[in-house]
Design a protein around this nucleic acid. Structure first.
Lengths: 198, 198
DNA sequence: CTCCAAAACGAATGCTCGTTCTTTTATGCG
DNA sequence: CGCATAAAAGAACGAGCATTCGTTTTGGAG
């Protein structure tokens, strides 16, 4: 099997990442063994190690997928023209979160990444930069809301973005840990706090 | 050393828990070994296993401490008379969080507990019930705010409480992962979203 | 059709770690 | 003062794990 097509290589890689995702979802990073991932992928030790030199590299790949999904959504959100009012934007973002909060969703993995990021410096830096970028998308929205007169012009966009952004993990943590409120209920609570139109 | 005093037993237990806390903070649950905790406590294997029958039980004890700290604060918050306006209450709660968000703080451990709670059913149920209780304290505050006319009487107190509560992890996650905004900045953003007085 | 290198395989390795268990120490009571 | 016993010690065990590496398979170039 020499020099196989690029597509073949990419497909194998996906096959392994998907297997890892299922395993990590089921058992968490530390309880899933390489053997678990290998068996789930239906491959051999050697095959998997050809694509990922270590378990940590597999975890990184999964972290990338997790954050990448949210990034796509928030990126599109920030691009909407005309810009969505902030509460609609929040609704849009939370709709994605609700999708990913189930047993199969990426958010359970995101929570594990946070834990891991605290002790794996490489993952820590990666997470820091990507989450900062994520928040940046909200900052764009806030600026546009200011231009539209929806928010006071003298407000600090970064601060408002941080508050809005915080409402996302604020929701799905409660959802995943406590079985908390659904998005509609949560949003109704947010809107009450927001005064009225915002 | 038979039948030693209650205080001695309690002190030994604390000694072990404190050692574990330091280790877990430094290396996370999975990278700290029992040997690490034992060495940090300056005790022997046998001594530690007399107080905690397993590593999981040590993790549970730490989880208890972590959540217990927040519980005390929010409990007191809900009892304040006259009740604090919601933004002041948030400020109060966030002040505690800021205290615990540093390298030595319990919030880093809380994040690990979330990951663990997803795969250890006992810890999962424990976290679910305790976090629900935590949110309940905010619900009390919301009801009182409604009585004071600070919020519309027809709002769902549980929903508003969830939104407020979500702002806490929303802050310290950003802080710990991305080095995010300090509490004052975050609060300023929250207040902008809140319209004005709320 | 041949041949070779890339790809896949999987047995073996070596280490780490949680836990057990036997032995030693030390305390308070009689 | 010494005995009974709780507490502490720490050597040893055994399972589980990530990773290595020598071997086998296989696709495609010539």
């Amino acid at each position: 099997m020499p020099r196989v097509s690029e597509e073949h290589l990419a497909a194998r890689r996906r096959q392994i990442v998907e297997a890892a995702r299922r395993c990590f979802l089921r058992e968490g990073f530390h309880r899933t063994t390489m053997q678990d991932v290998i068996a789930e992928a239906g491959l051999s030790v050697g095959a998997v190690y050809r694509y990922f030199p270590s378990k940590a590299s597999l975890i990184s790949a999964i972290a990338e997928e997790t954050i990448g999904g949210a990034e796509e959504v928030l990126d599109e959100l920030a691009r909407q023209d005309p810009p969505l009012p902030l509460d609609k934007a929040l609704e849009y973002a939370l709709a994605y979160m609700e999708n990913q909060a189930g047993d199969e969703g990426m958010l359970r993995i995101a929570i594990q990444v946070w834990g891991e990021a605290q002790r794996d410096p490489a993952l820590g830096e990666f997470a820091a930069s990507r989450y900062t970028k994520l928040r940046g998308h909200f900052e764009v929205l806030v600026r546009r809301a200011q231009e539209a007169g929806e928010l006071p012009a003298d407000a600090d966009p970064a601060a408002v973005a941080a508050a809005l952004f915080g409402l996302l993990p604020g929701w799905f943590l409660q959802r995943i840990i406590t079985g908390g409120p659904d998005v509609a209920t949560y949003l109704s609570g947010v809107r009450v706090l927001f005064g009225r139109q915002r």
